[in-house]
Design a protein around this nucleic acid. Sequence first.
RNA 1: GCCCCUGUAGCUCAGUCGGUUAGAGCGGCGGCCUUUUAAGCCGCGCGUCGCGGGUUCGAAUCCCGCCGGGGGCACCA
Length: 493
Amino acid sequence: MSEPSDEPKLSDVLRDRREKLGRIREAGIEPFPHEFSQREDIAEVRAAHEGLAPGIETESRHRVAGRIAARRGHGKACFLDLRDGSGQIQLHAREDLLGAEAYELLVDLDLGDIVGVEGTAMATRRGGELSLAIDRWRLLSKSLRPPPDKYHGLEDTETRFRRRELDLIANEDSRRVFRIRARTISEVRRWLDEHGYIEVETPVLQPLYGGALARPFVTHHNTLDRDLYLRVATELYLKRLVVGGIDRVYELGKDFRNEGVSHKHNPEFTMLEWYEAYSDYEKTAHDLELLVAEVAERVLGTTVVKRGEVEIDFAPPWRRITLREAILERSGIDIAEHPSREALARAIGGEPDPSEGWGKLVDGLLSRDVEPGLIQPTFVFDYPTELSPFAKAHRSEEGLVERWEAFAGGVEIANSFSELNDPDEQRRRFEQQAAEIARGDDEAQPYDEVFVEALEQGMPPTGGVGLGIDRLVMMLVGAANIREVLLFPAMRS
RNA sequence: GCCCCUGUAGCUCAGUCGGUUAGAGCGGCGGCCUUUUAAGCCGCGCGUCGCGGGUUCGAAUCCCGCCGGGGGCACCA
């Protein structure tokens, strides 16, 4: 659908618009003028005349601009729907107000053309719809391609995702999703800023990747003649900043993981990570439920969101359960009774993949049996050490680390731990990861000496959180697919 | 990577036990209409039936391959 403009055979629709453009130029009208200043947002005009009684014609003049979304002609008058970024308003165009020539040119416009108009506010007699009775107008940009169907909108998913501009033109639902996304990100920032966190930017291109169990994208720096990785997480750099004395730090940006796409995965996605010194995973859990509830309240006006038929309430406190209990509850398997890889594999019943250690098997139980059932916001606490190379050992449970993951709508939305700050223990964890790599796990962590040395410098006890922004937005808008909340999601091609 | 489904006009879709010239609504074009609301009325179909090959007297329809999309599996803190 992205053929060049000199395609050999234009459809009649396209040809007609080209011809119309020619006629406009011949008439001495510039179809792409430079500006249309001193206009009001359509939403402001609407607000100024809310509740105007049917049949009333005011003297109140307004100047607005936007795209023509629909037209209903009546001979020597017509109605146009004009939409800008703030909203939509009806225009009443009458030949007696505009003059014959201006009226004819207006009627000759196409749906999708962008115009600026001036007129007085009125409400129609029967419907009482607020309208502008226009007496001046000007073409601001000629549209050479037809807009999507004005009633059905644009439904083809491929076109909606590949040509998001058409989706935004056609579908109010889509416009709403991305307004909510923007407000969500801004409210998350505001919450962190107000709680004393410093926002930072760390490298996206990294000589060594780390901070998450994931495969990276590899790229190449030409003049340095070396491979670099696109970050899979911001974790290790942010903790170095905590070592540096930034006690409350966060970064909100893209991570990249070389993985397949699914309804909850996109190769590049927006992640928030924050770290608070002198804190632990109990505190971060409390902060997360507070943050999400406050953001939902500010963005949506409620902590309750609908997801299909189900209502999810983000008001704290969220349910808390240990990983062991969660798995026992959903699968009947008590992982504590099967401490070896072989025993657990036997309990599950499948033949274990040689690249899967005990931790991976536990992880499999979690994502297959537990995660889909966690609809109301839930913290799952206390994970196997093997799965969490950067989390601190549990203060009382052998073999576990102080880590939780938060789930809602059957999807993981956040992850947190009491950060490991013992450099020697961190070294041992990296060695464990090396063993996983040797076993064939290509998502294990490469050894990062600079990071360990940073810990040797001394890092205070710290709580850290990663919150998946796309997934949070999915929850807030009730989307079942991550692509609905990404403007330009990854597509096969 | 595997399995299933799918691709028809600018948009939304019908048509597929193989059979005349491929249809509808919206949009577009021409005409009527000065308070409509998916405005209405009259007339006009604007098309590489995803692409390539095959079977057949005849293919949108059946077969094979390719490309795009969707769903599921796998993968994925």
